[in-house]
Design a protein around this nucleic acid. Structure first.
Lengths: 209, 209
DNA sequence: GTCTATACTTCGATAGAC
DNA sequence: GTCTATCGAAGTATAGAC
């Protein structure tokens, strides 16, 4: 009895994730979001002030969940190398659980962060910070060679986001242009990223040039 | 004197690249494209049939130029490892010369290739094929360890696209959240991708686990 | 081939009743 | 808090003169 009938905002956010991921900020329709959430459009404007307000609320929520997930993943590891392995599978799992996260990130990058306010930027900044802290510790403990943490961060995050988000295009390509070739499955790709990340940071590997 | 006044289509394509990169397919305004190209809107519809026709013509053109560039880069190398180094700098240079290529690619991935027709897909497929051929040759010559070529392709392309396209967001972040930290410059990042690619493919590196 | 003017549609946002 | 009805802006596309 305490709650009157508050089911709307969560459903609206979920519907907004689908719509913004599918059509982008400009292409998204507030009408479609409301219909998908089984909520009246005026109700949507009542909870969130505008299309922009809804979009930003969604991004803050999504980035916050992602950061929580990465921190939890890292916490279960002991050595920095282990932690990076765990963070990598954590990222992959998060993207799979929030199928629209990747598309939203890709679009926001392409739009030069046009819709990000200071609060959303702060939530986003947590992600590279978590990874950078692990790498820095590895460098300090002489387990990793000294690399720029941001370079390593992009090298593990970007391929996974693009690979997972690019699956639909890849399937059309493999049918028409790479017929019959052995397809790359999800788990194998995640292991490749783990391996190449370890190799990139390995202190003892001989120089390659 | 020979040419009557044919300057339009190229200018339209260039203007469309800016507009589509900045606002996405749905967000792009045909009015703005026409104005930026200093061409009448009706003229634009005369040369290209529709907004979609213009968009596809732009993508085919851009992917075609990228493939030409990669082939030219690879041709100047001798060993597969050398060729990959050259391809990596070729990709980086291409993105810098066509500043909007990265954003358009990112958006198209996010939109699940919704605007790609068969012809555009064929032009896109050339890119992974060029890289895969180099890697396959390296594996055949026992210079590389056997990896899935597509995994390696994504691991070199994705970070560069995302890093270069993400520069605007990164600058806002570094100012507000990573104040004073040593910034990662472009050339250093390209070298990191070259290094990590070599390390990932290195046949003789000891196993890391 | 090039321009002006406009028809037609879609969509974000709000007013106002309940 | 929830709904219906609608306004006003913006945008794609075309008709038709030159």
């Amino acid at each position: 009895m305490p709650r009157p009938a508050r089911v709307s905002p969560e459903r609206i956010l979920a519907a907004a994730a689908v719509e913004f991921a599918a059509h982008g900020y400009a292409g998204a329709g507030v009408d479609r979001i409301a219909r998908r959430a089984r909520v009246n459009k005026a109700m949507l404007y009542y909870h969130f002030r505008s299309k922009q307000g809804l979009y930003r609320a969604l991004l803050r929520d999504t980035f916050g969940r992602a950061a929580d997930r990465l921190r939890a993943s890292a916490a279960t590891g002991t050595t920095p190398a282990e932690q990076l392995d765990l963070v990598i599978v954590g990222i992959a799992a998060f993207i799979q659980q929030h199928r629209h996260f990747a598309a939203i990130m890709l679009r926001e990058i392409a739009e030069r962060g046009a819709h990000l306010d200071a609060e959303t930027l702060a939530a986003l900044a947590a992600l590279p910070r978590i990874v950078a802290a692990i790498i820095q510790r590895g460098v300090d403990e002489k387990a990793f060679r000294p690399v720029h943490p941001l370079a390593a961060y992009f090298s593990m995050l970007a391929p996974m986001v693009m690979y997972l988000a690019g699956a639909p295009i890849r399937e059309r390509l493999s049918a028409e242009h790479f017929g019959g070739g052995p397809m790359l499955d999800h788990d194998a790709f995640v292991r490749y990223i783990q391996d190449s990340t370890r190799r990139a940071l390995d202190l003892h590997a001989r120089p390659t040039r």
